[in-house]
Design a protein around this nucleic acid. Structure first.
Lengths: 138, 138
DNA sequence: ATCCTACAATGGACATTGTCTAAGTCAAGT
DNA sequence: ACTTGACTTAGACAATGTCCATTGTAGGAT
C-alpha cells in the first residue's frame, strides 16, 4: 500500500516508528493534509509523537522530493504525497476541498520574454478556485 | 496622484487621517507590501496609527474590490492596489521580489470538464517562480 | 458653530502556524 | 551488546493575524 514508505526506505532513511506513522498517514490520492492534521492522525496511532517531529519529518520528505508543499490558502501549508505526477490544484472557495488536476496547456509558454523582466523562470503554480458539488448543492 | 484614494472617496467611505495614509502608502505600480510593511510606512507619517487599524483598513479595501490580496509565499499576505487590471505574479524564489505579469493564454480553458470534478470553476491564479536579474547576478 | 451618534481607531490579549534548542533516546552498524 | 550520530521530545519563541472593550471623531443635524 505505502508506495511512499517504500521509496523512503530505499533512500537509506533511518526508519523510526514516528516516520513510519507520518508516511502512512500521508499516503493516498487527493490527500492534502496540513501539518497539524497529520499530527492529529499520527497521535491516534502513536500517542507520544511530538509536533516538532511531524514538522521535521514533513520537511525532510519535501526536501527529498517525495512530498509537495501546497499553499492553496494562506493558512497552513498542506502536504501532497503525489509528488511524482506534476499537477495543479482545484480548490473549493467555501469548504476548502482540494482536487489534483492536470490542465492541458503549458502556462510557462504563455509568458512572453518582455513579461519576464529578466527573470529566469523555472516553475509555475496554478490554482483554480470554484465551488465544489457539495457546497453548491447546500 | 492617488487614484485609489479618489475611488474610495467616491464610495462614501468615511475619510479619516488613518485611512488616507494607508491608501497613500499603498498607491503605485508593482506595489506588493505586507500589512506590517504598510503599517511601518504609515507610522512614519502618522505615528499613532495602530496595527489593528491598518489590518482593518486593508481588509476593507479588499472587500470593496479596490485592492487585491496576494499570497505568493506562505508568510504574510501582500496587498496589490492594481485591482482593476487582471494579472498574475512572477516571484523571485530567492529575494521575494514580485512583478505583475499578463500571460497570453487562458488557463481556465485548459481545464477539461472531466478534470473539474463537478466544481463550478470561477477563477484561476497563476504564480510564476524564478530568479530575478539581481539575484542571478550575485 | 455646536452637538450627536454611528462608525472608526486604539492597544492589548489571544489564536494559529511554524521554528528552534537543549537534553534525552534509539536504530543500525560493528 | 556497545557505540554513535541521528532522531525525538517538550516547551519556549517568533511571525502573522484576529478580536474585543474602550475611546475618539467625521460628518450630518440643529
Amino acid at each position: 500500500m505505502s508506495d511512499l514508505l517504500e521509496r523512503l526506505r530505499g533512500r537509506g532513511w533511518r526508519m523510526t516508528a514516528q516516520r513510519r506513522v507520518v508516511a502512512e498517514v500521508l499516503d493516498g490520492d487527493h490527500v492534502h493534509l496540513t501539518a497539524d492534521e497529520v499530527h492529529a492522525r499520527a497521535v491516534s496511532r502513536l500517542p507520544e509523537i511530538s509536533r516538532a517531529t511531524v514538522y521535521n519529518t514533513l520537511g525532510e520528505m519535501v526536501s527529498l522530493g517525495e512530498v509537495l508543499e501546497v499553499s492553496t490558502d494562506r493558512r497552513a501549508k498542506r502536504y501532497d504525497p503525489n509528488a511524482h505526477r506534476p499537477h495543479h490544484h482545484l480548490v473549493c472557495a467555501q469548504c476548502g476541498a482540494i482536487r489534483d488536476v492536470h490542465p492541458s496547456g503549458n502556462p510557462l509558454a504563455d509568458l512572453s520574454a518582455d513579461e519576464r523582466y529578466g527573470f529566469t523562470v523555472s516553475d509555475v503554480e496554478v490554482t483554480y478556485r470554484g465551488i465544489c458539488p457539495n457546497c453548491s448543492a447546500a
